[in-house]
Nucleic acid binder design. Sequence first.
DNA 1: TTATTATTGCAATTAATTTCACATTTGGGA
DNA 2: TCCCAAATGTGAAATTAATTGCAATAATAA
Lengths: 207, 207
Amino acid sequence: MKKIISQATIDRLPLYFRTLQLVEEEKTSIISSDELGKRLDITPEQIRKDLATFGQFGRKGIGYDVHELKNKISNILGLHNKWRLAIVGVGHLGGALANYVNFASLGFSVVALFDKDKKIIGSEVNGIKVNAVSAMKKIIAKRAVDIGVITVPATEAQEVADKLIKAGVKGIWNFAPVKLNVPSEIPLVNEDLSIGLSALSYHMSQD
Amino acid sequence: MKKIISQATIDRLPLYFRTLQLVEEEKTSIISSDELGKRLDITPEQIRKDLATFGQFGRKGIGYDVHELKNKISNILGLHNKWRLAIVGVGHLGGALANYVNFASLGFSVVALFDKDKKIIGSEVNGIKVNAVSAMKKIIAKRAVDIGVITVPATEAQEVADKLIKAGVKGIWNFAPVKLNVPSEIPLVNEDLSIGLSALSYHMSQD
DNA sequence: TTATTATTGCAATTAATTTCACATTTGGGA
DNA sequence: TCCCAAATGTGAAATTAATTGCAATAATAA
């Protein structure tokens, strides 16, 4: 009885979650879809519809319990899993992600770093030692890595993806600007910066 | 006679553009929607529909001229403008973006860096000197900056956005996980890493 | 107690996007 | 020259997503 939730809805849930975290810190215990919508520029109807896809637990005339809703969304998104990440490619972007503090508030932690460059292997980034790509299989198993983060050049990304999957990661977060082929049971999310930048360029050119 | 192109289509155009760049390097002069689709995992019908929104210039029975199509997409996306970027917040992420080479192939260049931390101001990143946020107005005008890139903490992002707009930038690329209020004539693109990561977590939790 | 106001949940509708189906065009080979 | 295979372009159908309208519920104040 798996309810199908649309990708559009899934992409809005983190926004709700983050806003609820902030609201919770403000010691507010109830919030309406209207207020949540104002903070995020999303219509309250859209929010109610999104939330309704996974059950009803708002209270008519009142609103939603902030704490309860936050936990519910956290569960839907699987954030209680405390996912463990390995970053492959400790260049500028990989290094930045290794230091990215916002992960922690979502329950993610970086537990391994890999690179193929001998000049980088052995150094430490944010307290984590950089290992050789050749040691991937062993270290990923040992540190119980769930998610592989790919921050290598596009030309090497497919090879790295194959290795990560062979080593046992359960999902891939890809920053390389290339389409990766992965088995259908391995979730893959692409973070393609050139799309957003190009879209910005497009909108700036319209007048 | 401005043709309205959907955001979904605009987001696919950079993928077509990038693939065409690669195909061009392979010295291939003609490509079919079928071949392009295979490389990107997008149906050929979808590609033809997307391209049809801005005119018809494929050749029936033949396909599309790689060079012509690439240039056409570049023009649609406004990539011929050679946009000039300023990055505000030279932390790990801002520093990584300052070094990001993929920008160049799309015609973007980073021409200014700003931070409020006195320990960082005056240092150089990728050959560009980091300036104080207080010098923003003057430097943005002088260096003809088009796009402001926000890589400061969420709590400071709105203030930075206001300053960038006052200084005259024509678009904003925001990496801070917060909803920014900007005038409707200033295009804004949000690059929210927690959305993708949360979506990955969601899909990994479904079984 | 009763009216009023706030707010959710949901069905119906509308809008946007994708997929399908096929007529049309082009080049090449018999 | 004529037929066939390979492609595009596009209207129609199907699907997916967003919006609208409203009944139902809860708290509060008269």
